[in-house]
Amino acid sequence: MTMLAPHSASGAASIPQAPHPEGLTPVLRCRKITKRFGGLVAVDQVDFDVYPGETVALLGDNGAGKSTLIQTVAGVHRPDGGTIELDGKEVDIPSPLQARDLGIETVFQDLALCDNLGAAENIFLGREVPGKAYGCLPGLNNARMRSEAKAVLSELHINIRNLEAPVRTLSGGQRQATAIARAVYWKAKLMIMDEPTAALGVPEQKKVLSLIETLKSRGVPVIIISHNMQDVFEVADRLFIMRRGRAVADLRAADTNANEVVRLMVG
């Protein structure tokens, strides 16, 4: 484990910090993010960076502030203090929609899929490709949406036999994959996954993890929030650990182990 001088004086005086690639602009740079709910300080002056192509696991016990921190990036909460930069430019993220427009795609725990629609329809939900109906009326270009959906799914090695079948008929892993494919298709600059494997069976978990590897190889940075230590060590390059609203460690996955992480999480 490497212990370096922290980049900034954040809430915790000095936290174990992984070396960051030099000369690269972080895709996401959070500085002194603070979020309060009434008297409770859920996130206390946290600095959090994500560099191109890396997978960062955000860890912490319940109530550690990891979800709140991520929700300020996803536009669900507005921070009470601090700044968020995307590709070096300071941004304001007032809503989830705005976050999406900025290229921050969040795969929520409840997936945000319409169960009654097909995979292709879900991938293009809200961003349907216009086309013609019955040759002359304005309509939707379903053929194009299907072929593009097929392309992105096969690019990610996801096999969904019938793109029109309602996604409720798909397995948990296929649904998760659909949600991820949507983010990939719309060229996510940064992907946030909230407990991506929590609700899946073991074979499905493997699939989602390999999907994250695929994303990494495409240079899309991924933040995953997870409780599953095994998953975390399998895919994450870096672990960012929070405790009671503060950042307590920022470690390279290769330099640490589960025991140490748990110790940091519970303090």
């Binding site: 899929l113 319409c114 329809e121 809200g126 961003r127 349907e128 019955y134 009326l137 309509g139």
Partner: peptide
């Protein structure tokens, strides 16, 4: 035509299927 072939129609299904997801999708 309106229900089966237009954007509006697709959104009607989405809103009925999962309003939260529909809203998150913009």
């Amino acid at each position: 035509w309106l229900l089966g072939s237009t954007r509006f129609g697709r959104h009607v299904y989405a809103v009925g299927g999962n309003p939260k997801a529909a809203s998150r999708a913009g």
